[in-house]
């Protein structure tokens, strides 16, 4: 059976980060984690495509032990199988390392005709891993896709490139990165969540992939992450008649010189 692979990233919810009030260092420990936003659209696009092609949909992630918790969600979203390439050093991996780990697992799966990725991850938004995976595999890549179809062995896509819509085609196998606009990612229903419990979630140690040490050596090192805090007056006008609230706003804006 041919396979479609969706690569996804397990990230902390950006609206649940805590900031140290003094150093503004970012603390992710109390944040919920989630499948990166656009990767959910990629999973849904992959689900539709795999169903059309009679292909198996594999949801693939590279992460530390914590990313195992993502597998239930991606299986509920329609993946037939979830594979987690585990590395204790994933937290300090860069795009180079991540792409080599993902590509090696794609090769290990075999029979893969398409790899889908989100256009950018919710945390780094570097637009990096999709095209890197394509280069490691030696496959063509089509980025920033809002429409996608496969006919025979050919992929047709519409890319958003600045102000242009660019219709392209290429032969499979290929890597595709998708925009949210490729299609909404529905929240899985109860049936899908229950069915997910019966689907396989696999853990593969990154060391089992036979990668050269150089492929696992990060090129860039993160030295710090500093949060941003908005400094605004936050006056809520929530009491009184609507006309009074509006009048209070207009006089406040006039007083502060904003109007």
């Amino acid at each position: 059976m041919p396979r479609a692979v969706v690569c996804y990233k397990w990230v902390p919810a950006e609206n649940e980060l805590r900031l140290d009030p003094v150093t503004r260092a970012v603390d992710t420990s109390s944040a919920r984690w989630k499948v990166s936003d656009y990767d959910r659209n990629a999973i849904e696009a992959g689900r539709v495509l795999a169903a059309e092609r009679g292909a198996e949909l594999v949801a693939l992630t590279f992460g530390d032990a914590g990313a195992k918790a993502s597998q239930k969600d991606v299986l509920a979203r329609g993946a037939d199988r979830a594979v987690h390439v585990v590395s204790a050093a994933a937290g300090s991996a860069d795009g180079h390392v991540t792409a080599h780990a993902l590509a090696a697992q794609v090769r290990a799966l075999g029979d893969v005709e398409v790899v889908l990725c989100g256009e950018g991850a919710a945390d780094t938004y570097a637009h990096e891993v999709g095209p890197r995976v394509a280069e490691v595999l030696g496959w063509p890549v089509v980025t920033n896709v809002r429409e996608l179809a496969v006919q025979g062995e050919r992929l047709h896509a519409v890319r958003v490139v600045g102000g242009d819509l660019e219709a392209v085609e290429c032969d499979l196998p290929a890597v595709v990165t998708v925009l949210a606009e490729v299609g909404p990612a529905p929240i899985p229903g109860l049936k899908a969540v229950i069915a997910a419990g019966r689907k396989p979630g696999e853990q593969v140690a990154v060391d089992a992939l036979g990668l050269a040490p150089d492929a696992l050596a990060p090129r860039t090192v993160v030295t710090r992450v500093t949060g941003y805090a908005a400094e605004r007056s936050r006056v809520l006008l929530d009491a009184g008649e609507p006309a009074e609230r509006v009048a209070a706003l207009v006089s406040a804006l006039t007083e502060t010189g904003a109007l």
Partner: peptide
């Protein structure tokens, strides 16, 4: 973005997006 990521991979180097 695509060019940068593909070049970095071909050159085996880092990328700052």
């Amino acid at each position: 973005w695509e060019i940068a990521a593909r070049l970095a991979t071909r050159l085996g180097c880092g990328l700052v997006s």
